[in-house]
């Protein structure tokens, strides 16, 4: 804690509460790793490749997207492009987290790797700087450990299952994406974007290679982001940023 100098230490009761919050969010999220591991091997990845994604990519939405597109026969380029577009939000989270995670570069580089939906949500939900940091680190580390352990379990189980369709694992992918999308449909702009994106994906699907319809659907965000301007700014004062409970992965509460 020397890096943070003169700041007052966190009282034990708050520290315990923050740790408990980080732990529960971390454990709950870690469980998704089973579905990721199983889907990854069902999509044709090896156990080692699934594990590499959880260790090194470590951002659930992007990982599901990458294996989903490869599994559907999409090219590596479209898989990487979609995963990266989904990963843009982590850079925005980092802008927020960077306000309270300070210190030397090795420290920040480690923090960068742990900058995901859950760690950011628990971190920024706290009142004081020391609690924000504690929440961020505890959640990040617990999710990382849980996610990687359960990825391995899921990948090994998935390998033993055989043909993925028999077990409905292809349908599980769509359901996983839907569950990730759900908290983003709470705003009008989110719903408009989703409807437009669905339309774009549906009409382009028969005419372009696998994976491309997903990338084209990103233009829905650009269109709604541009056109919604006037209306949005009028409403803005009415929106609170702490409506979103920590851990639901909604990035809209983080943005100005």
């Amino acid at each position: 804690m020397t890096a943070y100098g003169l700041e007052a230490p966190l009282d034990p009761a708050t520290a315990t509460a923050v740790r408990r919050q980080g732990l529960s969010v971390g454990v709950a999220t870690g469980l998704y790793g089973v579905s990721f591991g199983a889907l990854a091997v069902a999509s044709g990845l090896t156990v080692a490749q699934a594990q590499a994604l959880s260790l090194l990519m470590f951002t659930g939405g992007s990982q599901f997207a990458l294996v989903g597109i490869l599994g559907a026969g999409g090219s590596g380029v479209s898989a990487v492009a979609t995963a990266s577009l989904l990963g843009v939000r982590n850079g925005l989270y980092a802008l927020q987290v960077g306000q309270f995670v300070r210190g030397r570069w090795p420290h920040r580089m480690l923090a960068a790797h742990l900058t995901i939906d859950e760690s950011t949500a628990v971190g920024i939900a706290q009142e004081v700087q020391a609690a924000k940091r504690l929440g961020f680190w505890v959640t990040g580390v617990v999710v990382f450990l849980g996610w990687n352990l359960t990825t391995l379990i899921g990948a090994l189980v998935g390998n033993a299952l055989g043909r993925p369709q028999t077990w409905g694992l292809d349908a599980a992918a769509a359901c996983a994406f839907l569950a990730l999308l759900w908290p983003r449909l709470t705003t009008g702009d989110g719903r408009t974007t989703a409807v437009l994106a669905a339309f774009i994906a549906l009409v382009t699907l028969p005419y372009v290679p696998a994976g491309i319809p997903v990338i084209l659907s990103a233009t829905a965000a650009v269109a709604v982001g541009f056109l919604a301007r006037g209306r949005h700014e009028a409403q803005e004062s009415g929106h609170g940023r702490h409506e979103d409970p920590p851990g639901d992965g909604d990035p809209t509460g983080l943005l100005p």
Binding site: T82, L92, A174, L178, L196, A201, A218, G225, R229
Partner: peptide, 26 residues
């Protein structure tokens, strides 16, 4: 900021559509 905030919703919806009704060869 608004476009980047909406990006995940757009991409996840695109993934749901392709994973739900996408068949062999488009």
């Amino acid at each position: 900021a608004r476009i980047t905030a909406l990006l995940p919703a757009a991409l996840l919806t695109g993934l749901i559509v392709t994973q739900t009704v996408g068949g062999p060869r488009g």
